[in-house]
Simulated scan of single mutants.
Amino acid sequence: MSYEVESKKEIPIKENIFHMFPASQPFVEYPYNQCAVVGNGGILNNSLCGAEIDKSDFVFRCNLPPITGNISKDVGSKTNLVTINPSIIIQKYGNLKEKKAIFLEDIATYGDAFLLLPAFSYRANTGSSFKVYYTLKESKARQKVLFFHPKYLKHLDLFWRTKGVTAYRLSTGLMIASIALELCENVKLYGFWPFSKTVEDTPINHHYYDNKLPKRGFHQMPKEYSQMLQLHMKGILQLQFSKCEIA
């Protein structure tokens, strides 16, 4: 199943949404030279990649991961864009009702980063995504909200289907890696490792901050990772498989 944006039925929106959209190109220094796409894989623990990540010109992160405290030595702290899955807004932040203050406190750790949401991918995502926009606007937060263009989501889905990735939906990691390849001259991926053991056969958690496994049937992680490996072998991007070298 692909995104609802492919449906001929329009997603019903009762409000004027155009004032939410950027008036100009938000990525002012595009194309960026060196970009880091930081996944959330457990392989990041004890990787000491934080300093290398933070030296990048533009850093992408996925789904509001923790970056403060001792973990920053492994994952870095610089963030230029971070995605938010609308399910996080509903499940973790109570759809920004009683937990609005906690949400604002959490996103403050990302500085001036863009918050990217799939408001127009599925009907269920629209309301929560709009709530993020209005919450930030009302609180005069530093972060700015961006929405995936529905046609971009459609064509991204169709492109990866031609490569054999026919999952219910693409993973956030693959989507952000795709965006990085469009915005950056050089792309390096950290924390992309969908396995339970390292190359040295050491057991690792699924995420660097917990061991919660994804829902079955939503993504095709082996096929996605196979595509990333092919891009790595062709020199189109770099995958970091192990600890980073300390300069």
Score class of each variant (00 low, 15 high):
residue 74 D to L: 07
residue 71 I to Y: 09
residue 39 G to N: 11
residue 83 T to D: 02
residue 57 D to T: 01
residue 61 R to E: 10
residue 90 I to G: 02
residue 56 S to E: 04
residue 44 L to G: 12
residue 80 N to C: 01
residue 43 I to M: 09
residue 94 G to N: 15
residue 88 I to F: 12
residue 42 G to E: 10
residue 85 N to D: 12
residue 49 C to V: 09
residue 71 I to Q: 09
residue 35 C to R: 00
residue 33 N to W: 01
residue 44 L to I: 09
residue 55 K to D: 14
residue 67 I to H: 07
residue 81 L to Q: 05
residue 96 L to G: 07
residue 33 N to V: 08
residue 96 L to T: 10
residue 87 S to L: 09
residue 43 I to C: 08
residue 62 C to M: 12
residue 83 T to I: 00
residue 28 V to N: 01
residue 59 V to L: 02
residue 28 V to K: 12
residue 59 V to Q: 01
residue 65 P to D: 09
residue 72 S to P: 00
residue 74 D to K: 00
residue 33 N to M: 05
residue 78 K to I: 03
residue 73 K to M: 08
residue 95 N to S: 15
residue 45 N to E: 15
residue 98 E to H: 13
residue 38 V to I: 10
residue 34 Q to S: 07
residue 35 C to W: 03
residue 68 T to K: 12
residue 54 D to K: 01
residue 90 I to C: 08
residue 53 I to R: 03
residue 50 G to P: 06
residue 29 E to R: 04
residue 51 A to E: 14
residue 80 N to S: 04
residue 68 T to H: 08
residue 61 R to F: 10
residue 47 S to E: 15
residue 93 Y to R: 06
residue 27 F to D: 02
residue 69 G to C: 07
residue 25 Q to V: 06
residue 88 I to Y: 10
residue 73 K to S: 12
residue 66 P to D: 09
residue 56 S to I: 03
residue 91 Q to V: 10
residue 33 N to P: 00
residue 51 A to P: 01
residue 99 K to A: 15
residue 78 K to P: 02
residue 40 N to R: 00
residue 73 K to H: 10
residue 73 K to D: 13
residue 88 I to Q: 09
residue 90 I to W: 10
residue 59 V to F: 04
residue 99 K to N: 15
residue 70 N to D: 11
residue 51 A to K: 12
residue 31 P to T: 05
residue 67 I to P: 06
residue 30 Y to G: 03
residue 63 N to G: 06
residue 83 T to P: 03
residue 71 I to L: 10
residue 99 K to S: 14
residue 26 P to E: 10
residue 30 Y to S: 03
residue 41 G to C: 11
residue 51 A to N: 11
residue 59 V to C: 02
residue 63 N to Y: 00
residue 46 N to E: 15
residue 91 Q to S: 12
residue 44 L to F: 12
residue 64 L to T: 02
residue 38 V to R: 07
residue 65 P to K: 07
residue 32 Y to H: 05
residue 52 E to Y: 04
residue 48 L to Y: 14
residue 46 N to M: 09
residue 67 I to E: 09
residue 71 I to W: 08
residue 92 K to E: 15
residue 80 N to L: 00
residue 34 Q to Y: 11
residue 67 I to K: 04
residue 60 F to Q: 01
residue 64 L to N: 03
residue 88 I to C: 07
residue 95 N to C: 11
residue 73 K to G: 04
residue 26 P to S: 05
residue 41 G to T: 07
residue 54 D to Y: 07
residue 57 D to G: 01
residue 44 L to W: 13
residue 71 I to V: 14
residue 84 I to S: 01
residue 99 K to D: 15
residue 89 I to C: 12
residue 81 L to R: 01
residue 41 G to W: 10
residue 83 T to K: 07
residue 86 P to Y: 05
residue 39 G to M: 08
residue 73 K to C: 02
residue 37 V to W: 02
residue 67 I to D: 00
residue 62 C to W: 00
residue 58 F to C: 02
residue 90 I to A: 15
residue 86 P to W: 08
residue 43 I to E: 11
residue 61 R to M: 08
residue 78 K to N: 05
residue 56 S to Q: 11
residue 77 S to C: 06
residue 32 Y to R: 00
residue 90 I to E: 15
residue 84 I to Q: 04
residue 84 I to T: 03
residue 54 D to E: 11
residue 66 P to N: 08
residue 52 E to H: 09
residue 87 S to Y: 05
residue 77 S to M: 12
residue 28 V to D: 00
residue 71 I to F: 11
residue 45 N to M: 13
residue 61 R to N: 08
residue 37 V to D: 07
residue 87 S to G: 04
residue 35 C to D: 04
residue 70 N to Y: 02
residue 87 S to V: 08
residue 96 L to W: 12
residue 53 I to L: 05
residue 64 L to S: 01
